[in-house]
Design a protein around this nucleic acid. Structure first.
Lengths: 173, 173
DNA sequence: CCAACCATGTAAGCTGTTACATGATTGA
DNA sequence: TCAATCATGTAACAGCTTACATGGTTGG
């Protein structure tokens, strides 16, 4: 199961779709980090079918892909995974976006806490590296490049805190 | 020429190194986004040799890889490319880090301007998307996920401005 | 009617991953 | 001496990209 597979699975879970419709999502939304090329999407859909997580269903004239029970379980397990410091940010955010489809908002809050924690770990790691011998020997611009990573991660941590606040407020009152 | 190839080329350009030494860099520095697995590094080095951009050179007992004239030209051309909004951030930052090895600091400043511009373009694009119909129909969390991207990009733009200032000051006085 | 879009695929080729394999050197 | 690290590879496999190919539908 690659990120592309999960992206397809999540979209199909939200709404039964044709391969072409899925490709259009990748072309016209910020999910464009995934390739919309037929050579990636159609083989991936075949794999998902073979794995039993989606099935082809006739809807009116055309047939679309729908998620199966096994697919639903696999997808939710993926969403529930804690965020790790090494996890790709785009993928983590994709999981967060998909969490909306679940009524239990606690899952989303748990994700945000986990994400903030992962950011924090990364920040700690970068700051630790910034005191190492290697760091001292690095030229100015290499250090600036690393600082870029630090800034970005700090912004991400702030976002997580903000988002957590907004979601909490949306639930309570 | 993949990003891995350029990363190897840049490291070799800075200092002649063995395959193992290159792998160690990927294992112990923030360049860890590149795989240090032998199955990726050694074949890549072979490709670089075949392309004529590096050559194996005996240094004392052991032999290391050194950059060739063609390699030097190819690498500099890569560094000089303007940053595009679609370019991977990590790769762009890698280019910036490698620019340190060139005495002409104007290249670095040009990069930072180009990078800031790319961030700006991305911000404009995201904000435009945030006024579209698609955006209106998106659930809260999807919107939050997109906002994450906005925040990150804004932080990157700020970093670029800061870095430009710092570098300018380092040059002038 | 013709261009544009809908819709689905296949094939070649390249990268990278994982896992296996080998042998030298070195420090405890 | 024995484990760890140095050092370099290969083989099977999966995934993605590019390019090619096909045929249906629809709007101007």
């Amino acid at each position: 199961m690659t990120p592309l597979n999960y992206a397809l699975l999540g979209l199909i879970r939200a709404e039964a779709r044709s391969g072409y419709a899925l490709r259009k999502v990748f072309e016209t939304t910020p999910m464009g980090s995934f390739s919309s090329s037929p050579g990636s999407v159609y083989p991936a859909l075949k794999n998902l079918q073979k794995a039993g997580v989606i099935e082809s269903r006739p809807t009116g004239k055309k047939s679309v892909f729908a998620i199966t029970g096994a697919g639903d379980a696999a997808f939710e397990a993926w969403l529930r995974q804690p965020v790790t410091a090494s996890e790709n940010t785009d993928i983590a955010l994709l999981r967060f976006a998909f969490l909306h489809d679940y009524p239990d908002r606690q899952l989303s809050l748990a994700f945000l806490l986990s994400y903030a924690r992962a950011c924090h770990d990364k920040i700690v790691g970068l700051k630790a590296f910034m005191t190492s011998d290697t760091w001292q020997q690095m030229p100015l611009q290499t250090r600036l490049a690393v600082q870029h990573g630090l800034r970005i991660t700090e912004a991400a941590a702030e976002w997580a805190a903000d988002a957590h606040l907004q979601l909490s407020e949306e639930i309570k009152p």
